[in-house]
Nucleic acid binder design. Structure first.
Lengths: 188, 188, 188, 188
DNA sequence: CATGAATGAGGGTTCATTCAT
DNA sequence: TATGAATGAACCCTCATTCAT
């Protein structure tokens, strides 16, 4: 029997790279197969459709990221510390696998609508922290969603600038700045 | 407006709507023709390819928006006032044509790389204001690009939440909050 | 504008021939296109799927045949005369377009289940004649369906033998024999 | 029955069922393997190709049926008795394994052309009986093939009506009617 | 010897674009 | 000029079959 899980990994890696380089629609299954060094048909043993491949790539990492953020947040006490920990986690996540991160950002508009309520979501994790900060009185703003958008926006747009080359160097180097910007905007 | 221009406008409107509803790649020229109430072949009298149609839709509005933002900014004196004016403009822009705005957000990843330096860009307008604020000493941060990302992020992510239904009501209603958040983050 | 209805006819003829020669599943849209002297894509302007092409080919002729049989039957008075007229019509139909007839016989197993009650059906026409013969007392058997099977079987199996070369010459030459066999079996 | 033969039988049974339910082309080796509770590759230990599997299923049963019919016919003296015995045998055969019978009817158009002269054929058995009836003067018609078609048609079309649900209950219950219809048509 | 991953050719279908009318 | 039929390449996917394990 041939490799198995190894092939699946090869497909994932190749697909991720192509999707980021050319976009999902512009990357054919033929291209992915060629880049994975297997044949088209073989992909379908591991993913039953292109849609499923994209979704697995998105959903698995989306949830994994949410879980990691949640762990980081839970390890801290104050809202400020929670936010700082998440931002640091975010930066590490970005630096560890920029391709993956770019993919997540790239396809979010097409995939976010498929995210179900029972799935772990980074957005909800951040919102949860903000909300608890409001509940404890640490944060004075009352609209958790609005504030969540701000925090998320600051971090994600910085990442976006990084992707487009407007900002350079590791994201980790910006963690301190990002944290202080977020704390400012949250009113901490 | 001559009949030719009217047709062109019909195509643009129909295309914009379809692109936002189904995505660019999932919207065929056949669909666009049908929605524009003209024939497939006739589209090519107005746009020489689908790519050009997408690009015109993006670039024209992108530059138009930049120009408008620039006018608003120039009418003000202080950096704080400039930022506030731009944020208000942004909210108006969004409320006036949500479809258009969603389109811009949707396709940016595919089109931004085609934007040339000689094109007016909203990002550059914002960055210009921030930079001048730094130059005059109003803003103490030194990295204009980083701060631009924050301001942009706050505003764009709020719009994104609006699009996904996480936030409701007109964006104009959030202008004051957005302004204060941005001023906070900029240190004004 | 190119041909239009002429192309549709070309496709039908080519498809019919291929389906009969190689079978439906063994005939690809590519083959049909080649045989029609047009391209694959062009077929889809006229038939929205291969299934629809097969169905149209079957259903249109199936109903047309039913209608013709019905006319022939209505022109006669006695049950015997009706049966004879239908059998003659059947033979003419076969001789006029053997390919078409073979197609109908070939695909019936796959298509018959899609025939709806509101569609004209040769089987129902024959059964109607038998039933009315029973009602008037001309036929003494009481199970119209069973007798219909016999009549149909005699005629169709003769055609099948013709197709496989077991019997030769025009079907019309067998009309008299077929009629007398059917009248025998019906008890007239 | 060795384990190899048992597996072969499982494959045959599963394939037969699938072929009848979905059609031969619509039933993949994957499906057959799954339904047989073995793996795809293992099928090829028993049948060297899908074509061969179909052919074995058809040819073996086709010949077996011919042999049985022949035995039944040989046990009788008069042509009428021979026909009656064969019709009874046919009905029993149908009732015993309807799936098998439907399969034979379903694939005949694709397989009949592969039947060689040295193979036992039910058609030839029936034709032999008719021919000998003509030779002995019991039957007055002179074209054995034509009469064979009638007899075959009466029986097979009745079975077809059974398959499509137009007729219900066991075929055995129709044996007497079928016999008298066939004797009528043959002129006995 | 059985397994099931991999092959590779082909399946039906869609689509941006061209062009005869 | 506007039309929509035709093009032809590419799309995603399935399949019978092979073969490393």
């Amino acid at each position: 029997m041939r490799s198995g899980e190894a092939t699946k990994k090869k497909i994932k890696t190749a697909a991720l790279t192509l999707f980021v380089e050319r976009g999902v629609d512009a990357s054919g299954m033929r291209d992915i197969a060629k880049a994975s060094d297997i044949t088209e048909g073989a992909i379908y043993r591991h993913f039953k459709s292109k849609d499923e491949l994209v979704w697995r790539l998105f959903a698995d990492n989306f949830e994994h990221f949410a879980t990691e953020l949640n762990k980081l947040q839970q390890a801290e006490g104050s809202t400020a510390a929670k936010l700082e920990a998440m931002i640091q986690g975010f930066c590490r996540f970005y630096d560890d696998d920029e391709i993956l991160f770019r993919f997540l950002l790239l396809v979010q508009h097409g995939q976010l609508s498929k995210v179900t309520d029972d799935m772990a979501s980074p957005i909800e994790v951040v919102k949860g922290v903000i909300q608890s900060g409001i509940d404890t009185g640490e944060i004075v703003y009352t609209d958790a969603t609005e504030v969540t958008a701000w925090v998320l926006g600051i971090v994600l747009q910085t990442a976006t600038f990084q992707i487009y080359g407007r900002l350079q160097g590791p994201m980790a180097g910006r963690a301190v700045h990002l944290s202080s910007a977020c704390l400012d905007v949250v009113g901490l």
